[in-house]
Write a protein that binds this DNA or RNA. Structure first.
Lengths: 139, 139
DNA sequence: GTTTATGCAAATTCTTTGCAATACT
DNA sequence: AGTATTGCAAAGAATTTGCATAAAC
């Protein structure tokens, strides 16, 4: 399903470095959106705070991760999912679910976002939905 | 339609101060979501940066404003709309529209959010939708 | 008169930048 | 070898805290 870090980096024409692999592995392991602070906690023994910032920036620019909208204030990021053919999932439609209990934020790839009727004159290019509630594990 | 600052503050049992009135007026004037920096630019002549931070915090805690999800990273805030009877608009359903051209973020009170079908086991309590595109004025 | 908010200074925290050393292709 | 990435130090923003003064009730 989800390709290994090296494959992902190659697909995006990024150099394969330990820090980048570690960040990608962390995202896969946690299966939830992570903030810089989350990553720093996990990786600070091995990698510099600044390198993690730069890694996130690089990944964002390469569309390897995306920002997750979060009402808590902290900026979080999540892996953009991949298909085996290398195509992204629908990039102008993100649905994220935040669990009130465990606090984790997950991308819901399966759910689809219905059309929203906007007022006259508004043109819709991209939509991001944050659903808050209780996740399957905490339910 | 929108009550004046003093009324809003009274409804929320908050002391009526100049800074609070000024912040509320600014939100009404601009009719768009504002960041702390936006408010500071406008109000710095008369009020301290720190006071604006504290005002925003107080307003958030009193549910007088809410955070607006923004993919740009900056935290923005918007007034929770009021009805004359003092009730809020649907508080577990926010739709915000961000214009790519003018950069403004507005709450779309009129638009309604259709039901989203979530995967098994997920319980939905609150939804926040950020739509990015071109607004009526820039179109 | 009592309680709460403000302003200023300073402390924290968050994020970015410069540059030499290191790792990748 | 040549180019991009890393780590460290340090700069720059953003946000929070402490405390005396001022304003609100």
């Amino acid at each position: 399903m989800s390709p290994n870090p090296v494959t992902i980096l190659k697909e995006h024409k990024l150099r394969i470095t330990n820090c980048r692999k570690a960040v990608l592995s962390t995202f896969s392991d946690k299966q939830s959106a992570l903030s810089h602070a989350d990553l720093e906690d996990i990786l600070k023994e091995n990698y510099d705070r600044v390198t993690i910032y730069r890694t996130l920036k690089t990944f964002l620019e390469s569309d390897l991760i995306h920002k997750v909208l979060d009402d808590s204030g902290a900026t979080k990021y999540a892996l953009c999912s991949h298909n085996s053919d290398g195509t992204h999932h629908h990039d102008h439609e993100h649905i994220h679910f935040k669990c009130e209990i465990c606090g984790k934020i997950k991308c819901l790839e399966e759910a689809t976002l219905p059309k929203v009727s906007l007022p006259k004159g508004f043109v819709n290019k991209e939509m991001s939905l944050l659903v808050t509630g209780v996740c399957d594990k905490c339910n």
